[in-house]
């Protein structure tokens, strides 16, 4: 090989490597990164306005108000997105109409608020102004009955999905509380559930289910057909210890409240881990927390059951 041909071969190699590098960088630019950033927290143990005793489920309405199921105080509290107290709802006086242990809340497109009560085995439906409109359910295993309803979601058509904890199933109702169908059933196989605690519905009309005691998240169609699953029991990243809350954001990413590991994990729609955030200043490491997660825009809210407070994070999205 002459000196000249050696030079030109070298130049060609440099060009090929540079082009490949540029192409890789452009690809990376198109793949944004997501990470959690702490923003604020509010609440302390108590029963006054803005206090909590075992805050469990939470949900947001279209105006960004935050509704929190304040379980051991038997009420739902409504806040601004930054934690300013607005109202509390307890239902109405009476054995069948008073909230006892609300553990989750969901808001429909039209502002109707649904509350799951773990102790009374009922679902409460409130108007946006807090007027109690309807109560349904009772203890049992038949369709329309519950053994501790633990999680709620509402789809774009207003259908109400209830995670029925001890019956290991999801029941689906119309907005009036008429039973439509159920999915899941106790088991460890694909599409089966073992003490589900929460679910989230995507824009594409699929459901992510916090299959808490199978220590995984399952993706099902809204008819209950199995699509995907991720997670297994453990303390490593990508693993869960009682994942009890799930939410889907505007990018289709999945936020999982990994309560037994005291963190929230963020996954891409294909199940790739994007980030995680662990509970800070945890005064009660013996208790599972955070138990729930809700997302709106770039705001992420967690219920810190152990420390009686709400934590607000922000999703920071940037190009690599």
């Amino acid at each position: 090989m002459t000196r000249r041909s050696f030079f030109w071969n070298g130049m060609l190699l440099v060009c090929v490597v540079s082009l490949a590098g540029c192409s890789w960088l452009r690809e990376a630019d198109r793949m944004p990164t997501f990470r959690y950033s702490f923003e604020t927290a509010w609440g302390k143990e108590g029963s006054g306005p803005g206090d909590f005793k075992g805050p469990m489920g939470l949900a947001l309405d279209s105006a960004g108000h935050v509704y929190v199921a304040d379980a051991e105080n038997g009420r739902v509290q409504k806040f601004t997105g930054d934690g300013e107290f607005l109202a509390e709802w307890k239902g109405e006086a009476g054995e069948n109409t008073r909230l006892q242990k609300p553990v989750d809340v969901a808001v429909s497109k039209d502002g109707t608020v649904y509350v799951a009560d773990f102790d009374t085995d009922r679902i409460y439906r409130f108007a946006a102004d807090g007027t109690l409109l309807k109560v349904w359910g009772q203890n049992g295993e038949a369709p329309g009955e519950f053994r501790s309803p633990s999680g709620l979601a509402v789809d774009s058509e207003g259908r109400v999905y209830v995670a029925d904890f001890y019956n290991s199933r999801i029941q689906v109702f119309d907005p009036e509380g008429n039973f439509l169908y159920q999915m899941g059933g106790e088991g460890h196989g694909d599409g089966e559930l073992y003490y589900p605690t929460d679910l989230a519905i995507t824009d594409g009309q699929d459901a992510y289910i916090a299959d808490a005691y199978n220590h995984r998240v399952q993706k099902l169609t809204l008819q209950g057909d199995f699509l995907d699953k991720f997670g297994s029991q453990g303390t490593e990243l990508n693993q869960f210890e009682v994942p009890s809350g799930v939410a889907v954001d505007q990018w289709g990413n999945i936020h999982v409240a990994d309560s037994g590991n005291h963190r929230v994990q963020l996954f891409s729609p294909s199940g790739e881990l994007l980030d995680h955030w662990s509970l800070e200043d945890n005064q009660h490491p013996e208790r599972n927390s955070p138990v729930r997660v809700a997302v709106q825009g770039e705001s992420v809210y967690l219920t810190d059951w152990a420390n009686h407070r709400i934590i607000k994070l922000r999703i920071v999205r940037s190009a690599k």
Binding site: G54, M56, A71, K101, V103, F118, D119, S148, S150, F165, Y166, Y195, T197, A212, V242, S244, S259, G260, E286, R287, N288, V291, W305
Partner: peptide, 12 residues
């Protein structure tokens, strides 16, 4: 008792 759903279930 660490899991709220379980401790609430026991109480119930």
């Amino acid at each position: 008792l660490a899991c709220p759903f379980c401790s609430y279930g026991l109480s119930k």
